[in-house]
Amino acid sequence: MSAATRATPTGIERPFALEEIIVSKTDLKGHITYANDIFVRVSGYDEHELIGKPHAVIRHPEMPRVIFKLLWDTVESGRELFAYVNNLARNGDHYWVLAHITPSFDATGRIVGYHSNRRVPDASALAKVAPLYDKLHAAERRHTDRKDGLAASTAMLDGILATAGMSYAEWVWTL
């Protein structure tokens, strides 16, 4: 299923167990090279439908693009990031995760791909994350030009974090 044929969000949350860890690996372009059984089950896709596809196949349309820009900027620079992400299952249900995304390195220290472990996020953290993400997404939608929308949400997030005196990575751990 491509982004163009992605399911319409149902508003129904798809649960997974606290002890479960969703795992995936991607190449440098974000195409899935590995998906564990939990990822396959929770996403609702068959494994063959995920392998080789962009990880964005599970991107929820209401996720602010600024979070993905932050994520990619961080891991492409060789650093890890913890981020809250709302994903879209094949049938349109959603599932929130606390994702830990890391670059994968070869023996020479060159980044060769990315690895993500995702867990069930704490409900009290989501109560703070979801309204912020709604504001960031609304800032993006106010602009017809996608670059202008991304710039607006980036400025908003940067301002919120500057006022709090912390980075996104630090903010995640205050929740």
Rank of each mutant, 00 (worst) to 15 (best):
M1R: 15
A3D: 14
A4G: 06
T8I: 13
P9H: 05
T10G: 03
T10R: 10
G11L: 12
A17N: 15
E19G: 12
I21E: 07
I21S: 10
I22A: 03
I22E: 00
V23D: 09
V23W: 03
V23M: 10
S24A: 06
S24E: 02
K25V: 10
L28F: 08
G30D: 09
I32P: 02
D37P: 14
R41G: 06
V42C: 08
V42P: 00
V42F: 05
D46N: 14
D46G: 11
E47Y: 02
E47G: 08
E47W: 00
E49H: 07
G52P: 01
P54S: 13
H55M: 02
V57N: 01
V66W: 00
V66G: 01
I67A: 06
I67Y: 09
F68T: 04
K69G: 02
K69Q: 12
L70I: 06
L70V: 05
L71F: 12
W72P: 04
G78I: 05
L81P: 01
V85Y: 05
V85L: 12
N87H: 11
N91D: 15
G92T: 02
Y95H: 09
Y95I: 07
W96E: 03
V97H: 06
A99K: 08
A99D: 05
I101W: 04
T108G: 12
G109C: 11
V112K: 14
V112Q: 04
V112P: 02
V112C: 11
S116Q: 05
R118T: 09
R119K: 14
S124L: 13
L126W: 10
L126K: 06
K128I: 02
A130S: 10
P131K: 11
Y133M: 06
D134N: 13
A139Q: 08
R142L: 14
R142K: 14
H143R: 14
D145R: 11
D145M: 05
R146V: 13
K147H: 13
G149H: 01
A151V: 09
A152V: 07
A152L: 03
A155F: 01
M156N: 00
D158T: 13
G159R: 05
G159C: 07
I160W: 06
L161D: 05
A162L: 09
A162T: 11
M166T: 12
S167A: 02
W171S: 00
W171N: 00
W173V: 10
L175S: 00
